[in-house]
Design a protein around this nucleic acid. Structure first.
Lengths: 240, 240
DNA sequence: ATGTATTTGTACGTATGTATG
DNA sequence: ACATACATACGTACAAATACA
């Protein structure tokens, strides 16, 4: 059962997307929402804060909360989501081909990167992501096998995050990503439909559990013309 | 005067950076922080929420708030900041050359993009950013002159945001960015030290005031080898 | 495996401050 | 200058998760 403020967040989000509250208009004021949802102001404010954080509304004193226009910049949205989840929001046909899925002994670099002890082993999983029949993205994943045991090719084909969260009951907490641009490697050339491009967009992700253990490092290589990253950010650190 | 929770946020941040609270350890529990800062739990929780949002701590029930390691991925950090502010956190020498700063009549595309009426004019500002003597970034800015009047070459050389916030007293609210990869243009070739690269990283930013008016569109072209973007994201939408 | 204590999470209430139309 | 809507801050109570006995 989700918290009340999360349900109110979802409800308001739906109402915004159904255009009950159109872009440019204000949603009802906090006091009215309190009455409507029969809860305290605190709870309403938490829901509104989520809307604000995620770029759906802008709050101003006196005026209220104005609905922002998010239609222009939809996805891929910044966040910790799997390719499966991302794909579910996309239009074209999507396919995953597992080109490698094996247990390896980590090298020194990876030991440092993933904070491994001497006995820890790693799953190395390489996957090609095809969009509308073209090989666009090459994902190379390393997972700490002590934390995430029992990976199979089927799981890698379907969804790692489903397995980790639903089967193993681990809680994924947060991730750091670094986006850079790099020359193509021989491997890129072999596995991706690169056309004439000689560079790829490289996304390195370090993903952690809520208990702060790192369990995954991903190196994701994107064909440059198909790469797009959207970011919503506020000027200050406050909750406004 | 900043809010109390913001001061506590800053104080805790300093203490983390001074390693009074080392990476991997917990900071004092909420109840102790309440006593130390002589405030309510609500206020402490707001401060901790900021730390959590910005990737400094991870909170877990029963255990407390663990300090995360942010040394690996420092900047450029995601957010609405000016080049001047970004440069102040960097090591090398930094220089801005204004190659264009004039008032223009917007074309149709720009009118839609920036939500302009027929009488609105635009400032068009082109700036080359040199880092350690090399021309690395080419910024092309369009500012709504009705909202932001009186731009001069000196302001463009120094800091637009300083002028907008401090002189004009406007409140910058939020921005949307879209990162893509594109072929170099003739203009890129002329103004940047591109070496052999035939692509650039393109960052389009739409920047808004807190009253939701868009006042700026920026197209920023980066030499691919010098581009880096870091992102911190949590798995869920909650405050944890 | 079980229970208990501890720490954070959610929710409610109230009062006052602050920006702004 | 005023009324309004959000912002901050204080307090209380109980729920949920989990480390540890």
């Amino acid at each position: 059962m989700a918290a009340k403020y999360e349900e109110i967040y979802q409800s308001l989000l739906n109402r915004i997307e159904q255009e009950e509250f159109p872009v440019g208009e204000t949603i009802p004021k906090e006091f009215d929402l309190m009455e409507e949802y029969a809860c305290s102001r605190d709870t309403i404010r938490k829901a509104l804060q989520l809307l604000s954080q995620n770029g759906y509304i802008q709050k101003t004193k006196r005026k209220g909360s104005v609905v922002l226009d998010r239609t222009r910049y939809e996805f891929p949205v910044s966040g910790v989501i799997s390719f499966k989840e991302l794909a579910s929001t996309m239009h074209g046909s999507v396919e995953t081909i597992v080109t490698c899925c094996e247990l390896i002994k980590p090298d020194e670099k990876m030991k440092v990167r993933m904070n491994l002890s001497d006995k820890d082993k790693l799953w190395m999983i390489e996957r090609v992501r095809k969009i509308d029949g073209e090989s666009i993205i090459l994902d190379l994943d390393f997972l700490n096998a002590t934390i995430v045991p029992g990976i199979t090719k089927e799981i890698a084909e379907h969804s790692l995050y489903d397995y980790i969260e639903k089967e193993l009951n681990l809680k994924i907490g947060y991730a750091n990503k670094e986006i850079t641009c790099q020359k193509v490697s021989e491997n890129d050339k072999q596995l991706l439909d690169l056309k004439e491009y000689d560079m790829v967009v490289n996304v390195d992700s370090y993903t952690y559990l809520t208990d702060t253990r790192i369990f995954q490092f991903t190196r994701s290589r994107h064909r440059p013309d198909k790469f797009r990253f959207n970011d919503f950010a506020r000027r200050t650190n406050t909750f406004s």
